[in-house]
Simulated scan of single mutants.
Amino acid sequence: MTGPDTAPVRPGEELPLDRLRIALQGRLPAGLDALSAEQFPGGFSNLTYLLRAGEQEYVLRRAPLGPVARGAHDMAREYHLLERIHPVFSAAPRPEVLVEDPEVLGSPFYLMERRRGEVVRTALPAAYAANPEAPRQLSEALVDTLAALHAVDIDAAGLRAIGRPEGFNGRQVEGWAGRWRRARALLAGSGDLPPPEELHDEEVIAWLEAHTPAESAHTLVHNDFKLDNLMLDPADPSRVVALLDWEMTTVGDPLVDLGLTLTYWTMPVQPGGSRIGAAGAAEGYLSREAFIERYARQRGQALSPQAVVWYEVLGHFKLAVIVLQIFARYRAGQTQDPRFAPLAAQAEWLIREAWRRVTGPS
């Protein structure tokens, strides 16, 4: 029996419960004899399951199936990040158990506490239907959580060493450009993307390189901060229960987070299909400009919409890279998930939107 936020495990992504039971012996308090698993259907990267051990519930996260880029989907790193972030940022779930032996599931994995709440994806949940203020409240919760994350004292928390903040923006462009070119090369001759002279992807890269700003500050950077990575209180959309998906967290320029969040916030269609499209233009939600203004006020800094354009272009480009990498794995037969079929078109849209922001008015 699955719950409202879980589903049966997708074919080919089942968990070997017997091996899992042995690996967790002595590491969970009880319930291993009745171990069962369901799958959280959202997300396009790591595989996430609801694991029940008797009366206890845990969230299990592991890397996607098939080959993955070196250094990506590092479950041990994510586990240890949460060990350090959870005590200083309560929205980060508490990690419980790390298993690094790849023989158990095919890759390292970890368990964390399960938190319960609403995740807003395709429409406002029924729990908020009678609340006309819900769009504004959840918008403000999103902004305020981002500002609070960036306010964590990385030195007092011993977190500065998880990244290399100096030169962060330049390395972002260099790293994501390399990933884009490698993913594009895997699709060479397939016709899945227009040629560079038509798509302007190399020109987007050149613009990002030529206009790279110095870091505005050095803070925690979540690197995938968006509405459906927040879990909200069903009774109060202004209260955040959890912030999820910490796999790419590092230390760098906080405006890189803001740029990617605004990328999601202003997109009419997000990877794999419709979401609350272009929330920044929808009635009741904060506009792009109001989003930036509230964030700047929370951070106590002057920040104009024009000042974040470079970060938004980078956000569009980064998301294009991520979805193209996933599509390349799908095209190569390394995953069968049908949700991935439209992602080349999504990457193309993102690059064209990045180029529009480079060449047109902000």
Rank of each mutant, 00 (worst) to 15 (best):
P67H: 06
P87K: 11
I276V: 15
A185K: 10
D153P: 03
Q137H: 09
R275W: 09
L350V: 06
E103Q: 12
W207Y: 00
G175W: 04
F44H: 01
H73A: 10
R136Q: 05
L32R: 14
W176P: 04
R288W: 02
L28C: 06
M231Y: 03
E38D: 13
M112L: 14
A344Q: 07
Y79E: 07
G31C: 07
I85V: 15
V358G: 02
A141L: 02
Q336I: 04
G175Q: 09
E289N: 10
L17P: 06
R239K: 05
L17Q: 12
A345H: 13
A302T: 15
R115D: 08
R136S: 08
A332C: 11
Q325V: 08
Y330W: 14
F109H: 12
L227A: 01
E174Y: 06
V104A: 11
P361W: 00
P87Q: 09
Q336H: 10
A53Q: 09
V221F: 03
V204C: 05
K226T: 02
V120D: 07
R329V: 01
A242C: 04
A282D: 13
A23F: 10
P342G: 09
G42W: 00
A344V: 07
K226Q: 03
L20A: 11
G66D: 05
P234T: 05
A91N: 10
E14A: 14
R294P: 01
E198L: 13
A341M: 13
I322G: 01
A69S: 15
G189N: 12
A206H: 00
E348A: 15
V308L: 07
V97G: 12
L208C: 00
A151F: 08
M248P: 03
A185Y: 04
F225G: 02
G189A: 12
Q137P: 05
P194F: 09
E55F: 10
R352V: 11
A134H: 01
E113C: 07
P4T: 07
V308H: 02
A148L: 00
P29F: 06
R352G: 13
D236R: 08
L60F: 13
S362K: 08
L32E: 10
M231V: 11
P361A: 09
P95A: 04
L230D: 02
T335S: 00
R182Q: 13
G300F: 13
L32S: 14
V240G: 00
D228K: 02
R239H: 01
A242H: 00
E14F: 09
L193P: 05
F44N: 03
R288N: 11
A126L: 13
A156C: 11
G26S: 12
S190K: 14
Q172A: 07
L105R: 12
A235E: 11
A91P: 09
M231F: 04
G284L: 06
V68E: 03
